[in-house]
Design a protein around this nucleic acid. Structure first.
Length: 682
RNA sequence: CGCGGGAUGGAGCAGUUGGUAGCUCGUUGGGCUCAUAACCCAAAGGUCACAGGUUCGAGUCCUGUUCCCGCUACCA
């Protein structure tokens, strides 16, 4: 029997989960697994929460809890959400388990003993108050480019410059606010550069991977892989299993994917299976379901780790999805721009399959897709209610009406009957193939086509007009067989609905093999009463949801404003300077000739300015407040002798002066009457 | 800047190895009335982002350009 190990991304245990997670990773994985099980395959469906790493410690600190309390809370919440939505994991575990710590350390030790790691000491910023080394993101300071006092160690959010922490002036730790000091630290690196030939060979042997996945890998390989630190200076995580490594833990991306293995082992132990069958047998297919942000870890780094270890199988496929947007904006946890699963279930009780359907039908398989409540309503009302639910309901209600709920016998078949039965028999294979190839949207379309076929059949044969009871019996028999097959093939997508259909048909759940059979229900078989599979979503319901999101948006804006206002008390006066200091500044007036946005930057505008002598290019991070069009022809004041600086690949010669308002918006400094270009300011 | 992905009728998407451009929703007209005013049939609607090129023939291959997403923030 073919064995499969199917993993779904380990989600980070620092927040609840939303529809994006479901659409991008967990629903596709669940569909795939349910299908495999239905065909009789031996599947281990593995997932869990990732509970290590810096963000967890930050969140804990912010909420005044221990990291353990934070992950305990979210582990339970996330697990429940998945369970409620019918994601059929064989095990949903967590990386804080002792067994996981042990296995991760074992694998680390194996690699260490094999001499795989490079040991390297480097100088890093250290927060003496918080007593830990600081990731780039947790260092703030003054931006050397634009002077923003709150630039981060990796990037300035005002001017968009990419920075390294050492470039910041007056750096401080965002954890404690203290001034960090440089301190040497030793870490262990996985030499991906040296392993590149093997990794390339592996990736290139999988040309069948989705274009976005394969392309992303090629992008990394082309750039050349760099050694990557597999340890971090932190106290929350898995201890490095080497002497004298207090305060060091394994890099979360080292231990997280190992979680797939640990959890498999945990599950196997509990169920009398041999975990090695699922990780060390060359005939087992390993499939990772993830979102596009994880491609490099699952296609390059994790396989590299396993290659180095030597005894494990590598992923057969990594069907990564793109992202799903919500009502025109990116889903964002911190901005609360999301549809949270636990909230959805409170407001739409028993409507798991409706969401599963919409998210599958519109899944971001090849590119980013968009979830809107309007679309949700349309799909539920016209597709699930109108086509799918309606057909099953018609078949059952007509049978109850005409035959007291007993399956009638099939009489002599006409051409229209044999034709529809032939079509029915072809569906399961086509749907199964689509699922095997990770084309879930196509599979779902086929399922709807099958329901349409049923509706069409009833419209063509018009059993309600038919006088001959035997003829009516034949039609109803066929309509019921179609319903039964519909239950089987829709089960991976709509498990709750499939169960309801089986219940109404008074039939035990069937394996995939049986789908398409025309004798699933024998003549004389007694049916249960009909019940509606889906109900319509009213306008008011989706309007309420949209309103809820609009409210969130308003709240976000208000909070941002509040935050800005808090930061915007009138700044203190700077130290006194002499006239000579001022005289060094060459401030002039010029006219903007051309203005355009800088590609790929949301803050920078590029100007061509007539300074009376020449035309000079100046970049300015003001795109948020000014459009290029409105700037053309305006006179502005600029600093003319500022050293040139390259931003986003364009050299800027000078700096346009702006007055900043309380809310952060900017105002031009213009002479009160037009002056000649190049006119000095003093 | 560079690299990867995307751009197809009003909306959301398919288009596998180049050979008459499809699906769902929406719109319009018709049919039916068993069914949750659901269902069935038909029609209108696309110079396949733009400009070149290869080819007997290109949505599909090549080159250039534009815009969106990602590689870079919590995050599938």
């Amino acid at each position: 029997m073919q064995k499969y190990t199917v993993t779904a991304a380990l989600i980070y245990a620092n927040g609840p989960i939303h529809i994006g997670h479901l659409a991008g990773c967990y629903i596709p994985a669940d569909i795939y697994v349910r299908y495999l099980r239905s065909t009789g395959a031996d599947v281990a469906f593995i997932s869990g929460t990732d509970e290590h790493g810096v963000p967890i410690t930050v969140k804990a600190k912010k909420e005044g809890k221990t990291p353990q309390q934070v992950v305990d809370f979210y582990y339970e919440q996330i697990k429940k959400s998945f369970y409620d939505f019918g994601i059929s994991f064989d095990i949903y575990s967590r990386t804080s388990n002792q067994a996981h710590h042990q296995l991760s350390q074992n694998i680390f030790t194996t690699l260490y003993d094999k001499g795989y790691f490079d040991e390297e000491t480097s100088e890093q910023y250290y927060d003496e108050v918080a007593q830990q080394f600081l990731a780039d993101r947790y260092i703030a300071g003054e931006c050397p480019v634009c002077g923003n006092p709150n630039a981060y160690g990796d990037q300035c959010e005002r001017c968009g410059s990419t920075l390294s922490p050492t470039e910041l002036k007056n750096p401080h730790s965002t954890l404690s606010g203290s001034k960090p000091v440089m301190k040497p630290t030793k870490n262990w690196y996985l030499p991906l550069d040296r392993m590149q030939p093997d990794i390339e060979k592996y990736v290139n042997s999988h040309k069948e991977w989705k274009t976005n996945v394969f392309g992303q890998c090629q992008s990394w390989l082309k750039e050349g892989l760099k050694p990557r630190a597999m340890t971090r200076d932190l106290d929350w995580g898995i201890k490095v299993p080497l002497p004298d490594t207090d305060g060091k833990v394994l890099y979360v991306w080292f231990d997280a994917p190992i979680g797939y293995i640990t959890f498999t082992k945990e599950w196997a132990d509990q169920n009398g299976k041999n975990w090695e069958d699922y990780w060390k047998n060359k005939d087992t297919k390993l499939v990772h379901f993830i979102g596009k942000d994880n491609i490099v870890f699952h296609c390059i780094i994790f396989p590299a780790m396993l290659m180095a270890e030597g005894s494990y199988i590598l992923a057969d496929n990594v069907p990564a999805n793109e992202f799903m947007n919500l009502e025109g904006d990116k889903i964002s946890t911190s901005r609360n721009w999301a549809v949270w699963l636990h909230e959805y279930l409170e407001e739409f009780p028993e409507k798991q399959d409706e969401l599963r359907y919409v998210l599958s039908a519109n899944a971001p398989e090849t590119k980013d897709s968009e979830f809107t409540w309007k679309d949700y309503q349309t799909r539920v009302n016209s597709e699930l209610v109108g086509v799918f639910g309606n057909f099953v309901n018609r078949a059952l209600v007509l049978t109850h009406k005409n035959f007291n709920g007993v399956v009638p016998a099939k009489g002599e078949l006409r051409e229209v009957d044999t034709k529809v039965l032939e079509e029915l028999m072809a569906f399961p294979k086509a749907i199964g193939e689509a699922i095997s190839n990770y084309k879930f949207r196509e599979a779902l379309n086929l399922i709807m086509d099958l329901a349409r076929l049923g509706n069409k059949y009833l419209a063509e044969t018009e059993p309600w007009k038919e006088k001959d009871p035997e003829r009516v019996g034949s039609i109803m028999n066929i309509a019921l067989q179609i319903s039964a097959s519909l239950a089987i093939v829709s089960e991976p997508f709509l498990p709750f609905t499939a169960a309801k259909i089986f219940e109404m048909l008074n039939l035990d759940p069937q394996q995939w093999d049986s789908a398409g059979r025309v004798d699933l229900l024998a003549a004389g078989h007694k049916l249960n009463p009909a019940q509606l599979l889906f109900t319509k979503i009213e306008d008011s319901v989706v309007e309420k949801q949209v309103q809820k999101l609009l409210d969130t948006k308003k709240m976000n804006e208000l909070e941002n404003k509040k935050k800005e206002d808090e930061n915007k008390s009138v700044p203190e006066l700077k130290a006194t300077i002499q006239y000579d200091d001022f005289a060094k500044l060459d401030i002039r007036v010029g006219t903007i000739l051309e203005a355009e946005k800088v590609a790929k930057s949301d803050k920078l505008l590029k100007f061509l300015i007539d300074d009376g002598i020449q035309k000079r290019t100046i970049l300015s991070g003001i795109a948020k407040y000014f459009t290029p069009e409105e700037m053309i022809g305006k006179q502005v004041t600029f600093l003319a002798n500022l050293a040139p600086r390259k931003m986003m690949g364009v050299e800027s010669n000078g700096m346009i002066l702006m007055a900043e308002d309380r809310d952060g918006s900017l105002a031009l400094l213009q002479p009160h009457k037009a002056v000649w270009n190049g006119g000095p300011v003093s």
